[in-house]
Design a protein around this nucleic acid. Sequence first.
RNA 1: GCGGUCGUGGCGGAAUUGGUAGACGCGCAGCGUUGAGGUCGCUGUUCUGUAACAAGAGUGAGGGUUCGAGUCCCUCCGACCGCACCA
Length: 859
Amino acid sequence: MLGLFVCKEDTMSRYNARTTEPKWQKAWDEAEAFLAKRDPDKPKYYVLEMFPYPSGRIHIGHVRNYTMGDVIARYKASCGFSVLHPMGWDAFGMPAENAAMAIGGHPKEWTYGNIAAMKEQMKPLGLSIDWTREFATCDPEYYGQQQALFLDMLNADLVYRKNAMVNWDPVDMTVLANEQVIDGKGWRSDAPVERRELTQWFFNISSMAEELLSAIDGLDNWPAKVKLMQSNWIGKSRGLQFSFERSDGGEAIEVYTTRPDTLMGASFVGISPDHPLAKEIEASDSQAAEFIAECRKGGTTAEALETGEKLGYDTGLTVKHPLNPEWELPVWVANFILMDYGTGAIFGCPAHDQRDLDFCRKYELPVISTFVPKDDAGFVRPETSGEAYVPPKDEIVQFVQNLEGLNPFCTGNEAVDHAIAKAESEGWGTGQTKFRLRDWGLSRQRYWGCPIPVVHCDDCGVVPEKKENLPVVLPDDVSFDIPGNPLDRHPTWRDTPCPSCGKPAKRETDTMDTFVDSSWYFARFTSPRAQTPTDIDDAAYWMNVDQYIGGIEHAILHLLYSRFFARAMGKTGHLPQGTEEPFDALFTQGMVTHAIYQTRDDKGRAVYHLPEDVDQEKTVLRETGETVEVIPSAKMSKSKKNVVDPVDIIDQYGADTARWFVLSDSPPERDVEWTASGAEAAWKFLGRVWRLAADLEDGADTDEALERETAKAIHEVTVGIETFGFNKSVAKLYEFANAIQKSKAGPGAKRKAVKVLAQLMSPMTPHLAEEIWAHLGGEGLIAQAAWPVADESLLKEDSVTLPIQINGKRRSEIQVPADLPKEEVEKLALADQAVIKALDGGTPKKLIVVPGRIINVVI
RNA sequence: GCGGUCGUGGCGGAAUUGGUAGACGCGCAGCGUUGAGGUCGCUGUUCUGUAACAAGAGUGAGGGUUCGAGUCCCUCCGACCGCACCA
């Protein structure tokens, strides 16, 4: 690699990124080219990439993300917009505490050290960022304003306290994040995790469920799949809520079902292990207690609950079927029923729910079909097949166990409506709309987060901290040698007078979920030094974010929480009207992947190898000649040795090459595979473009063909950028550069074309573009030059080639004037040799002419 | 388990959104430049087939709608992502 590097700089005529790039970065700084200014004469444009977590090193994925944002920012600036393109750090979170535990030191030092290091790595990319607006969420100036927001939200009833389950490590005596639970065990202690109930703070996001759902429709510039995922996450459903009377006269069991039409197929009533009734039984029945304790082992994730083995315990209680008091159903405690959804109790209908069927098979409970396919010939019923029958709700089926008064041939939806209407008219149940969306638990039993600004007083209860006492700053003198939250054992920080009565009281030691930090940072960027969370005038000018760019992994939580916060900030006076949906357009970009090279050791285990240790052509290890297995397009991971470090790439080729590469090949929403040969190709191309410009003479000559190429290039590259088709813009730029190179035009015409080429490339490879611009005598900085405009008249072609299909297969083609009437085209088509031959004297059955596109002769 | 996405040459991918499949790049082959290698320049490159044409096949598999399907619908196979305390 080093040897190659020498070659890459040695020739005088070569473009030297190493000296050129810092030169132009300095020029931009001096010109304050990227300072965001409120300019009443210009339209504004706010482009934002999801801010990074300061892990310590930038990742090639960051390069891709920020390069895309930078292309948009630079492009919009040259189109005359006043651009806001800020950068900050999502700086609270567990890794800082983990580092403190693993290697000592303080989370604060670790975090700020990482921020400095990452900024150092990011700067050479030449991003058009307004660094004067930079902040980290762990700055007291930021989280203090977040505490002020919290207090206002508390005042507006958007925050409240209730009990909820957490993962509890019984050995380390600490709360665990889902990530820290591995196969149901604590990651450090290896002890089986338990679920434990704690009183925690919640944002009342479910109160906005209906609005958060209906507003999705208006998000025209969001990816359809993100909107669909959000809709499903909010999960609106219509169903029936009713009670099962207990045979022993105890408190009735309230259930909620979206399929009340299958009530005649009920075979048991199931309750969650966390249901109040389960707790009641637990107290008196030791076997039940044992079972419930078993259920509480393992994590709290939906995935763990739903993929685990379905277990149940027969409580011995029975309930009466609402439509037939003689019919008694057993009550089971079942581990797959979530307390958080509906009422925490269900009735099981095994014929039409796979989970219920598995459960009933296991515990030998009856299976009763309530409906079968409309035409049930050959249908094997769930009673005997082991497969539940779950057709779409809009499909017509035949009911065999129906509620009185229902047409046996109807859709699931009709049957549900009928069941609800019947229950309501008979008075034993009510139709209800429910959401899957749960309130957002924001309490974290950890140090490195934003302190929740409340005080617990024995006399006054939970008391909000006074705003003038904000920020409630994290104490620095903490240690991480034992697990748990150091704030809990920090008496001088924890002990504080009650803001209300002044008596000794204790601070809340829980801190906020880091998702809170990232739910409003976009608003803070509009006025990052304001003494209030936002400055309403600045927010009014800059909001909304015109283009937001980030990973698909944030499709649900971060975006939903931000949508909630924008509304909450509107209600508490921190954002102006019209910012309820803070992100006008969203783009979710794919990952940068890289091949994994692996061999096997004697025991058959995988051994991974660095790309530079592998002979790429023969796919063998350079040292031993051993054959290497290549796994393409894998997510980068240190342990798999397939990580590409952007710093190395920039050192070797320069930032422009890295930027050009991550935009090439793959569409931005898809993954792109990093390959050494691809990076090399990008580097070679940039060198070729430089040579194209380097030895051009001037001249007064013109060339129409080249002008046409130029107009087409402007048009297509612009469309590519506007539609996030960066790979297509890149392909067009290759074509345009090739066309210039091969053109026989004189130096004057070529010079004009190369200047446009530099402009079109400037959002992607800004340093090279500046160098060419300066070399060709362009005025000022290309970063501040106006975007070129295509000459419309040159875009139109005089004649077009129309392919002729015969019976749908391409057989010939004709050249016709672009504006030739359809009838004339038909005549020309019928006169084509291939058509005459195929017709063999007959007439075509049909002749289809799609103007400007295609001709199809049907014989 | 629930929800979502994707599948096109040797490889990454393009296809004006139902209208010439394979743009552009990599790789490979040949030629030129060079003392040689690299660089650089030119030409070719879906597969079968042919001396070359011709001709045929072809977008994970199977079926359907249509004058026309990579694109729309159904079934199947495979890969990937999310699931509320990772950021």
